[in-house]
């Protein structure tokens, strides 16, 4: 496949929708991010390489990459980047784009985030027990048995609430989130 001259695409969108994201243009391709990343060895493309792919308009490959999903949000890349590129934040935006395009690496990745958010939208608080059980049963039914050991450990020590905690003013939160979603759809993501 031959990549020719650039035209506005995912690269520009990612920069526009990440606060302070436009400095991505100044990427030196030095590899500090890739070198720093705790899970870099398991990524199919290091962040640096992913950025090079973005600049080369390899949008599909970028969206399908596991890299953003393997980001652990440790911010090493961000603080070490000699060009002060907010790499961690760019990874969040890339995840949003992948979900929106339905092109993510593994359904499980997006679904974990989705389940988590689902609980928040329902109760206003996260629900570790529900999340763990639902997510594990959906994606790793065979392993749930062994994982159940963990859950049991935690339950026994009073570290898992089996019923979710719900905030009182749920209608207020829902109104805020709905308005935010409406704005996001209208303006195309956060600035």
């Amino acid at each position: 496949m031959l990549y020719t001259s650039r035209k506005p695409g995912l690269y520009e969108q990612i920069m526009a929708e990440t606060p302070g994201g436009d400095v991505l243009m100044t990427c030196l391709q030095c590899g500090t991010c890739g070198g720093s990343c705790p899970s870099g060895a398991d990524m199919d493309a290091t962040p640096r390489r992913l950025f090079a792919m973005l600049m080369a308009d390899m949008d599909e490959a970028v969206l399908e990459s596991n890299t953003p999903w393997y980001c652990v949000s440790c911010y090493y890349c961000t603080v070490r980047c000699p060009q002060a590129i907010p790499i961690t934040d760019l990874m969040y935006t890339l995840k949003q784009k992948a979900i929106a395009a339905g092109k993510y690496h593994k359904e499980a990745h997006a679904d974990f985030s989705g389940s988590f958010v689902g609980y928040i939208e329902q109760y206003g608080r996260s629900f570790e027990f529900g999340l763990a059980t639902r997510f594990q049963l959906t994606h790793h039914p065979l392993k749930t048995l062994s994982k159940g050991g963990l859950g049991f450990d935690m339950l026994r020590r009073g570290r898992l609430n089996t019923t979710p905690d719900r905030i009182r003013n749920m209608p207020q939160l829902t109104a805020i989130l709905n308005e935010a979603k409406r704005l996001a759809a209208q303006h195309g993501g956060a600035p």
């Binding site: 030095c30 720093s36 070490r80 000699p82």
Partner: peptide, 26 residues
């Protein structure tokens, strides 16, 4: 590749007692 870090935290065999320079070979 710009060196990301220099550490004395050995992770793999052969690293004990050494300084490890971690980087992405771009």
């Amino acid at each position: 590749g710009r060196a990301a870090e220099v550490t004395d935290a050995a992770r793999l065999p052969g690293e004990e007692g050494k300084l490890i320079v971690q980087a992405e070979d771009t």
